[in-house]
């Protein structure tokens, strides 16, 4: 799973969000490192919808502009959990090998 996809699913894990909300949340989750642009975001959202990882929660018109809210589906939640577990296991293994004695890495 690409990092942008992982971060988008993570942004939706806490509740439904619209496109701009996802962009700001992904920026925050990644500590300002990942700044999604609209083209990248909507290509990913389209693919995730096709794969039934996310769905449309609701639509709103705010100031004559359309806002579509996306939510994580159960399949998307499972996929995100599996990916998070995989990354966690890899990170744990890496840290254990870097520091077999259990002390601080310097």
């Amino acid at each position: 799973m690409q990092e942008a996809t992982f971060l988008i699913l993570t942004a939706l894990a806490a509740g439904s969000q619209h496109g701009y909300g996802i962009i700001t949340d992904v920026n925050e989750i990644s500590g300002g490192r990942v700044r999604l642009r609209a083209g990248t975001l909507y290509t990913a959202l389209d693919r995730l919808r096709a794969d039934e990882m996310i769905g449309v929660d609701r639509e709103e018109i705010v100031g004559s502009r359309l806002r579509r809210y996306y939510r994580l589906t159960p399949a998307g939640g499972e996929r995100l959990a599996a990916e998070a577990a995989r990354l966690h296991a890899n990170a744990t293994a890496a840290l254990a090998r870097l520091n077999p004695a259990g002390g601080l890495i310097t």
């Binding site: 496109g19 701009y20 962009i23 609209a38 502009r65 359309l66 806002r67």
Partner: peptide, 11 residues
């Protein structure tokens, strides 16, 4: 398109 325009204008 409408939704992407919303995001583009917001950013």
């Amino acid at each position: 398109e409408q939704e992407i325009i919303t995001v583009l204008m917001a950013t």
